[in-house]
């Protein structure tokens, strides 16, 4: 039992040293959250799909570091998105603007609503 506990402690210590690499110096809690949000919503330019927070490509690591630096300098989220869009194109912004492809969101909703109406009228009529 004691051995097991020790093994567990060892694993805990090892896992701590593993995550230490991902910490960015000089960022406070709120800035770290922003970094996570931004890297979740920017696509890795080297990979066909996947955001930079899930990617191990060298460029993703560089981009995360650059974004951390920009956050420290005082860039807003939108400014960082704009900078990335300017450099790599709209393709890398995963957080798209719904107003640009409204039909994609609205038409399925309309179809769903009408289907619900259709089914309810049908079942009500049948139950009478």
């Amino acid at each position: 039992m004691k051995n097991l506990q020790n093994t567990f402690r060892l694993l805990l210590i090892l896992s701590l040293s593993l995550t230490a690499e991902q910490l960015y110096e000089g960022l406070n809690e709120e800035q770290l959250q922003r970094l996570t949000y931004l890297s979740d919503n920017i696509r890795c330019p080297k990979c066909t799909y996947g955001n930079i927070s899930s990617s191990n490509a060298p460029i993703s690591k560089d981009l995360k570091e650059e974004i951390a630096e920009l956050i420290i300098i005082g860039y807003s989220d939108q400014e960082i998105f704009n900078l990335m869009e300017d450099r790599y194109g709209e393709y890398v912004i995963l957080k798209t603007d719904p107003s640009k492809n409204r039909s994609l969101f609205i038409i399925p909703l309309i179809v769903l609503l009408i289907s619900i109406l259709l089914i309810s009228t049908y079942t009500i009529k049948k139950s009478k």
């Binding site: 289907s115 259709l118 009228t121 009529k125």
Partner: peptide, 9 residues
């Protein structure tokens, strides 16, 4: 009514 809705969908 149902036929109308089917057509609309």
């Amino acid at each position: 009514v149902t036929r109308f809705f089917t057509v609309v969908v």
